[in-house]
Each structure stands twice: as C-alpha cells, then as structure tokens.
Write a protein that binds this DNA or RNA. Structure first.
Lengths: 135, 135
DNA sequence: AACAACTTTGCAACTCAGTTGCATAAACTT
DNA sequence: AAGTTTATGCAACTGAGTTGCAAAGTTGTT
C-alpha cells in the first residue's frame, strides 16, 4: 500500500495531520464527495479548514472537482498520472435517485469540433440517470 | 414576427404581462441568462416572481437551464421543436473570461456508451475556454 | 355585472454552499 | 531558541435559490 505522505509529497502538498486524514477518507470512497459529506465524516473538524484542504488538493491536482448540478460541488481523487488536461478528463455519472456521482474513469470525454471562434480549455460532462443499485 | 402570446400559448403557459416581458428579454439575448441577469433588466420586478417565471418556462420546455459551473444557473430559449429529450440536447460553451454562456445549437451532444448498470436520462456538457471576442 | 374559485405577483424571510478576515497554533529556517 | 512562514479554528458574511403568505389579478358561472 502506498503511503499517504508520499502521495501528498508527490503533489507538493505539505503533509499535515489534517490533510492525511482527509486524503484517507477520500481514498476510501467509491463515489465523489462534497464538502458537506466530508464535514459529516469529521464531527469535530472545521468547515473552513476542510474547505481549504480541498482547495489545496484541487490546485495541486490530487483531486478534481465535478459540478454535477446538485448544487454542491463534488470532489474525487485523480489518477496518479492525471494532470487535469483535456485528454485526462473523463465522464461523470449522477444518479438522480441517490444523488451519488461516479467517476467513469474508462470513458474519456469525446472530442468536439468547436466553431473557430472558441478556444477550448476544459470540458465538464455529466451524464444523469439511474444507477442500477437504485432501481 | 411571431407573437409572444402565441409562443406562450403553444407551450401551455398563460400569457401574463410579466411573462411577456420576460420572454421578450430572453428572446433578445444571444447568450444564456441567469436569474441575477434578469433582475438587472427589471429594476422594479420581484426576484421571486422572476424566479417562478423561469421555473414555469422551464417546466413547459420554453427554456432550458444550463449549469455552467459559475455558481448561477443560466437559461436560454429552446428551439420551437425542442422537447428537451436527450436527442434534442446541445453543447454549451462558457467563456472563462467574460462568463458568458453560449448555446452551440448545431453541436449535438455525442452519444456515450454507458456501463450496463447506468440508465441514461439526460446529459449536461459544458465546454469551457475563451471566446474570440475576449482575446 | 357580481360572485366565487383559481392563479399570479410582491414582500419578507429563510436555507445552504461557498468564502474570507483574523487571531492562534504548528511547522520550518537559520 | 527566535523569528518567519504556513495551517488551523472561529466567526461572520455573501449570494443563489427557495418558500409562506397575503394582496392583486384573472377566469368562469350565473
């Protein structure tokens, strides 16, 4: 098993106790995680600290954020090699019943040919529907 | 020119003075419009009324909503024939400089082959980058 | 035209996600 | 160990979205 500190260091994030705990929780999830979800896991931690921890992780590409339209931004761990460039991006799936958001890591976002007057930077693609667990 | 009331009636929305005004403003835009944008256009109208007007329009598929990740949902007129089914959907473009969101009506959302355990209902696809007007 | 029934509007208030300032605590530097 | 930088905790605020309720407007019936 890979050491949490190694992961943090490899992304140039100083490993603090708080950050190790947050990383641990994130790596135990199989669906994306909101700030509110995270708060529930840490009865005694401060919302602002968790918020800034997520921001730090995101800035350093340890996690990526997903805007799934539920009103709260969710986060999920990036793959080790991820640089969050367009070619690294994948599709996300939001279950409209349980509100869980899944990373479909194996489904790359299709290439789009934009009109010439638009220059692409990134793409957010969220498929919504029902996950079989919820039928 | 098509009559506002005819448009409202064709979507089974009772034409009131307020709704005609909102529809008029919406049809004059070439980018998607948020509730806050709408408020600015009507110094004296109430936010809740505008909010409910947009909701009514959306429920009746006169407009569609776009979650572009800016934190405020935007709205744009549907094409006459639109029923907001997956095959009616198009890609949206958010300019990260001016925050305007464009409907790319001619770019349909590509078909995705989902894992068998997910049943598709709808897709939100937002391409982000710079519009040439903003360079 | 007058009445009742229903719909829309305006006002006020509230929720919740996200965010920031500031003081304290912890970690790092020499 | 002293001083500098960085992270954390608390409090407070912003802004989008939303709801309850009463007043105003609309529609249908006689």
């Amino acid at each position: 098993m890979v050491n949490q500190d190694d992961i943090l260091n490899s992304r140039h994030i100083k490993p603090t106790a708080m950050r190790e705990l947050v990383l641990k929780v994130l790596s135990e999830q199989n669906t994306a995680f909101s700030l509110a979800d995270l708060e529930k896991k840490f009865e005694k931690a401060d919302r602002a600290t968790l918020y800034r921890t997520l921001k730090t992780f995101e800035e350093n590409k340890l996690i990526h954020s997903i805007d799934d339209g539920t009103g709260s931004v969710k986060y999920a761990l990036c793959k080790e090699t991820c640089q969050c460039k367009p070619e690294d991006l994948h599709v996300h799936f939001l279950c409209t019943k349980c509100q869980h958001t899944y990373c479909l890591n194996d489904i790359a976002i299709p290439t789009i040919s934009l009109p010439v007057n638009f220059k692409l930077e990134t793409i957010n693609m969220v498929v919504k529907g029902i996950s079989i667990n919820c039928i």
